[in-house]
């Protein structure tokens, strides 16, 4: 499975993009000391020619905000947090859903009830649900930033667990309908031994695919929450001019950038456009990875061998017959 993934171009392209982004972000953090170039006025000699926010140019690739901070480096600096949140939240999602799925295996008669209750998630947009629950809590001032962030991430995780657990349970059931599970049961294997020795080897490629899909879902959710103004990176107010203070994201985390810059959409559209575009690029990269995994999964070594054997059999039968099999006609 793992070797097959690396052979396809799709997974590699997606992986390299994400890897490059992350390493550049970490390089920026550790080697370049997380510095973001700020300059509010551009001089030509001594005469000022332009004032922040700057439009995207060869000097400021993605433009700059009103503080004159380079947006490109802000995005690079925030990448590690956004991707980190997405990785961690989806890992937790899969982990909890796996346990939920195993528990659901022995749910028996309660199962249709749980399934029915889980359906209700399909009629509520998840960003709205999170906003609805988090809204009153964010307004409380006594809670520290880390507690709020932790609470939000837990919600992002929990919101997907019921339906993913049901999905995993169905995958396990599908694998358990194979004949080798029946024979393992007949040999007296205990439930856990069957689960870990016989089901897991077939389940984990599916789990890897689900993980990548969950990362995409979390990234989309983060983009939505960012637009709706739920900050993940923490907010501070910085002085702008003499009388204004404007909210700024502390960590440059992407959904924070989006939320902070959304109100400057009319003034400096690139400030919103580029964070959204970087979300789109990363989601695209993960879609490439998911496609690569799907393709590798289609050619599992076990299945391939079986197919070959069948074909050989058919050929030997058809040799001394006067008609041609349909399947053979297609091959030929």
């Amino acid at each position: 499975m793992i070797k097959a993934i690396w052979k396809g171009p799709f997974f590699l392209i997606g992986f390299l993009f994400v890897f490059a982004l992350l390493s550049f972000s970490l390089y920026h953090h550790f080697v370049m000391n997380n510095e973001i170039y700020e300059n509010q006025i551009i001089y030509d000699g001594i005469t000022p020619i332009d004032k922040a926010p700057f439009e995207p140019s060869s000097e400021y690739w993605f433009g700059s905000d009103r503080m004159g901070a380079d947006l490109f480096y802000q995005i690079i600096s925030g990448a590690k947090y956004t991707l980190g949140i997405a990785f961690a939240a989806s890992l937790l999602r899969i982990f909890l859903s796996f346990f939920g799925g195993v528990l659901l295996l022995s749910a028996g008669k309660v199962l249709p009830v749980i399934k029915g209750l889980g359906q209700s998630f399909y009629y509520i947009p998840s960003a709205l649900l999170i906003l609805f629950i988090v809204g009153p809590i964010i307004a409380i001032d006594q809670i520290t930033f880390w507690e709020k962030a932790f609470f939000q991430i837990m919600l992002i995780v929990l919101i997907a667990v019921p339906n993913t657990a049901i999905l995993i349970k169905e995958e396990i059931n599908l694998i358990q309908s194979n004949e080798f599970i029946t024979s393992a049961k007949l040999m007296g294997g205990s439930r856990f031994r069957i689960l870990f020795k016989h089901v897991m080897p077939h389940l984990w490629p599916r789990l890897v695919l689900m993980y990548v899909q969950q990362v995409i879902a979390v990234l989309l959710l983060l983009a939505h929450l960012g637009i709706l103004g739920i900050f993940f990176g923490g907010t501070i107010y910085r002085e702008y001019g003499i009388e204004f203070t404007i909210p700024v994201s502390v960590s440059n985390e992407w959904s924070g950038l989006l939320g902070g810059y959304y109100y400057q959409l009319r003034l400096a559209p690139w400030l919103v456009f580029f964070p959204v575009l970087s979300f789109a690029a990363v989601i695209m990269a993960f879609n490439f990875m998911a496609e690569g995994i799907k393709r590798a999964g289609d050619q599992l070594p076990g299945r391939k061998k079986m197919k070959k054997r069948e074909k050989v059999k058919e050929k030997s039968v058809s040799k001394d017959q006067s008609f041609v099999f349909l399947t053979e006609r297609k091959i030929g």
Partner: peptide, 15 residues
């Protein structure tokens, strides 16, 4: 239908 309605009410009272 009944279960989804119950589910939505349960979610609605989470705050």
């Amino acid at each position: 239908f009944i279960l989804s309605v119950i589910g939505i009410i349960l979610l609605g009272s989470v705050p």
